[in-house]
Design a protein around this nucleic acid. Structure first.
Lengths: 220, 220
DNA sequence: GTCTATAACCTGATAGAC
DNA sequence: GTCTATCAGGTTATAGAC
């Protein structure tokens, strides 16, 4: 299950649907409000810099309710983190074992899906990757990262370029797609790109990256 | 500083400490010890998750001394951060205005220098980039990011590929070089690369990346 | 379920002895 | 310069009224 029912905009979508069905059900449940707020605040500030008060305020509820529903900051964070991780890695998971797709098709799918996902959630990567670094072991147990190593995807890469370690390809592909979002604050602060220009350049990359990747695969 | 050496028990204490934590060398002044410890702990945990007590312990000194020398956690962090930023961006600064170098030479220099720097300081990028995101404005004023935009380097890129926004090249180059270090914990946790293998693959990239960059300068 | 009030703890910073 | 002891303020979590 890659989609997350309680994620902010998902929840909003549900709200819209609820409105259409029954005019009575106007608002999100308190639990959903807290989770949506937590998702937002944790992603923006990281675990350590987030205070439970920030989340409560963002959710428009009382601080005590947070503990009533989720017991602790830590437990709430775990829930949010698992959802974010499956979002972030889901783009790659989707493609690992589809034997029907060529390497090029898989690359194209990853590029397009990632850029759409990240245009909508620009600070997902830096959040995920810095929280993983803070506590690598904790998250290894929660997300089956190991299934990448033996996947059909990796075998296809290996077949195409037996001379290179397949992670070289993976680093290139993800670097081209994900890294711009990590650099985004720097690019914008330096005045090289506005927020709008960034997004449009990223959309351009949906076409450009697959060509570049193709070029790598042929480069001596 | 040297006088302490004449006191037997002081020397023994220092020796024991040096054995226990090899992080900070015995011969450093207290101020330097604190700074070195701060550099290490801040980089590993980030500003918010770091407690001044962690730094004091790592430095093998008392908590009060931290404030005696640096007044506050915030001021100590600023000092460390400025050093880290000039390290991280220095690789690019070096090359911005050297009119004698071709674009290819500059690329080669950036690739080789970055990989050496980051092999020695693997979590420099994620530290810098996540702290910038937490507080973009603060650091914009301390590091002349804007000088990239109008540099000779950018002009050379523009000349080579007038059809593309020059940041596209910059994102590619830095993505290929820097992103693997941001992904490092994931690659290692997933069992795709050991620490040693990672480093050797990165050294390989010193040769590979310039070829790839050359290839996409020509790719339609 | 939701609130207010508060307990219990942690953290940055300082006072003052040596 | 360096230490111990402690303060002041903030943070998580809970108790108890409604």
């Amino acid at each position: 299950m890659l989609t997350t029912r309680f994620f902010h905009w998902e929840a909003l979508k549900q709200l819209a649907m609820a409105k259409k069905k029954k005019a009575v059900e106007v608002s999100l449940s308190t639990e959903e409000k807290i989770k949506a707020a937590a998702s937002m605040v944790f992603t923006k500030k990281g675990y350590a810099a987030t205070r439970t008060r920030d989340i409560a305020e963002e959710a428009g509820i009382n601080l005590a309710l947070l503990n009533y529903y989720f017991r602790s900051k830590e437990k709430l964070f775990e829930i949010v983190m698992v959802e974010k991780m499956s979002k972030f890695f889901g783009v790659v998971w989707q493609v690992l074992e589809s034997k029907a797709m060529s390497l090029e098709e898989k690359t194209g799918s990853i590029v397009a899906n990632y850029i759409d996902l990240l245009n909508a959630n620009p600070d997902l990567p830096i959040f995920i990757l810095s929280e993983i670094r803070m506590n690598p072991a904790r998250f290894a147990s929660r997300v089956p990262l190991s299934k990448v190593a033996g996947s059909d995807f990796m075998k296809q890469i290996k077949k195409q370029r037996p001379d290179l370690h397949p992670t070289q390809f993976l680093m290139n592909l993800l670097g081209l797609v994900v890294f711009p979002f990590i650099m985004k604050p720097v690019l914008e602060q330096s005045g090289m790109l506005t927020e709008k220009a960034f997004q449009s350049q990223m959309n351009l990359r949906k076409e450009l990256i697959p060509k570049w990747v193709k070029a790598f695969l042929k480069t001596a």
